[in-house]
Design a binder for these strands. Structure first.
Lengths: 216, 216
DNA sequence: ATGATTTATTAGACTAGTCTAATTATTGGG
DNA sequence: CCCAATAATTAGACTAGTCTAATAAATCAT
């Protein structure tokens, strides 16, 4: 995952709106980021393709599980940086927030780990907000966590017997790329496709299958 | 002065080459910044227009006084950041340099002042290199320090008597924009122009006239 | 001092992120 | 339920920074 600074700004805006229980409609996001609606539309499409958000005209943009992961790592950085700047350099608002806003895009995972260690793994920032936990590396999800239409790659299928054969027979194997087309009522089954065939996966299989989100 | 990150990278490259007594030829700069020569040429032209460098095919790019000022503020930030990261977070090479390289473009003058204060105004960085002094704000120069062809704006002309009249008669006044066309032998006079008229300014006048570099 | 090699320059194209102007959808108030 | 206001979308254009391919200029080694 290598998102540009701009992409990160959009992700954060959507995350922040979600925290306030507001829909990330285009107009709203445009106003927050001081850009015009067509710009936001272009970025929403880009982020959808990357599996970071799903966008629907009337629902606005919604972060996928993958997108939420990205957002939380950004928030984690922001809050650790604020905590650090506050406690070491005694920086006050508004400088505190402004600098953190810039630094969060630039400080590496490695450095943020050092900062976390220095601060003795704080759980809240100077404003009392919770600092999300670290999840570095390629994040894995169980299949049932992934939203429809988000392309993913299979990492592991810990199956046996006829379930295993079912997967093998349909080329539903580690390394292959699929997406969820539809979710059955009460999440009891998932219709997946690799754009050649469609396959039904039961909920108890879906919970065991490990997957990563792929970017297009 | 609001230079992009990219512009700053070129300025630093030229400054670093100068420290090694090497000419900032296009090929060399291209190799350092991992870009191709046409890209460097485009940037050299841009920086020339901004009065940051002067470029000549066989001499390579040379920083103007204004450009050197920019470079030194960047170096100052870099070295203060390295010192801070080393002494507070015990960061080691190569992380130390890499992070400083990114942070120097993003940390404000205000924050760097806090860091300087925290470190108790160190004069050298962890490698023993000298940390340049701060010169924030719109930097002023005496006219005789400015290189030919670099456009500048007059800030102050502390003249009297017939010198004053000479300036007034020729609209050589605070607020007006000029550049040096030619420097006499032994720097004893400066031919300046505002693209309408040409004017000769003596060295002892030039030393008193305060000026800022302007960007086009 | 001339031909080979290297370097500089031009011309034209691409990407990401942005814009404006015009059009199409959606929505909410009488 | 219809229309006016608002929001979304399309189409087309711009900028900064980059590229490749082709040409021109400089340098260097015999």
């Amino acid at each position: 995952m290598d998102l540009s600074r701009t992409q990160q700004d959009y992700i954060k805006a959507i995350w922040n709106l979600d925290q306030l229980d507001k829909k990330a409609k285009m107009k709203v996001v445009a106003d927050i980021l001081l850009v015009k609606p067509p710009t936001v539309l272009a970025m929403f499409r880009q982020l959808s393709k990357l599996g970071i958000i799903s966008y629907d005209k009337r629902e606005g943009a919604k972060l996928t599980v993958a997108g939420r992961g990205e957002a939380e790592q950004l928030i984690r950085k922001h809050r650790l940086i604020e905590t650090f700047l506050r406690s070491v350099l005694k920086i006050e608002e508004p400088l505190l927030h402004d600098e953190a806003e810039k630094l969060e895009h630039v400080i590496s995972d490695q450095l943020i780990m050092k900062i976390d260690e220095y601060l003795n793994y704080p759980s809240t920032d100077p404003h009392g907000s919770i600092i999300p936990l670290s999840r570095v590396g390629d994040i894995q999800y169980a299949l049932h966590e992934v939203e429809p239409d988000i392309p993913f790659k299979i990492i592991q299928i810990p199956m046996a017997g006829k379930e295993k054969n079912y997967c093998i027979d349909n080329d539903f194997l580690p390394g292959s790329e699929w997406k969820i087309k539809n979710v059955g009522p009460k999440n009891e089954s998932f219709l997946v496709t690799n754009s050649e065939v469609y396959l039904a996966i039961s909920d108890h299989m879906a919970e065991k299958i490990k997957v990563t989100i792929i970017r297009r």
